[in-house]
């Protein structure tokens, strides 16, 4: 029984995880407007799509930090110049274990999830961690919100 539970947990499709709503801009949008979009959506990356709404790039806080903040580029520069082109993406059928593998071997924190060419949402490292932890209520979820209140032993001695 426990064994089966474990199997299904790791083999769960990523579609079951609470994906984040993406921030999306069109190609040619200025960097400033892209950052505004990220701030508005409370997310650390923005997807860049072409006229046909096909995903062509992704711009993350990391890209901005390394390509823009220290550079001489102006804020009106189109995002296309600093975004990561043809970013890695996955389908909702991706399993939790596969997602873990992807984040482990890559530096990025956000993975666009696509069905065909439609963006379903963003899988983030945080979202994945939360999803995994939700399957471990005893050890993770059902703890007091203040770590100093966590009892060192079960009987509270």
């Amino acid at each position: 029984m426990t064994k089966r539970k474990k199997e299904t947990f790791w083999a769960e499709p990523i579609g079951k995880v609470d994906l984040q709503q993406p921030a999306v801009v069109k190609t040619g949008t200025s960097i400033i407007d892209a950052v505004k979009e990220m701030k508005y959506n409370q997310i650390g990356c923005v997807l860049v799509v072409d006229a046909k709404k096909k995903l062509v790039g992704i711009l993350s806080n990391g890209d901005l930090m390394h390509e823009f903040v220290g550079s001489t580029l102006s804020g009106d520069t189109p995002v296309d110049e600093i975004m990561t082109k043809n970013p890695a993406s996955a389908t909702p059928a991706l399993t939790v274990q596969e997602a873990l593998e992807i984040f482990h071997s890559n530096r990025f924190r956000h993975l666009p999830i696509l069905t065909g060419e439609t963006v379903e949402g963003i899988l983030s490292v945080r979202g994945l961690m939360t999803f995994i932890s939700e399957h471990l209520p005893l050890q993770v979820m059902n703890l007091p919100p203040d770590s100093s209140l966590i009892a060192p032993t079960v009987s509270g001695e």
């Binding site: 050890q139 993770v140 703890l143 919100p145 770590s147 966590i150």
Partner: peptide
């Protein structure tokens, strides 16, 4: 938000990160 101790468990950290 919170400073944890080296002795807290990984489960505790995940909990705090989630919250």
């Amino acid at each position: 938000y919170e400073i944890m101790d080296e002795t807290n468990s990984i489960g505790d950290v995940i909990n705090i990160l989630s919250i």
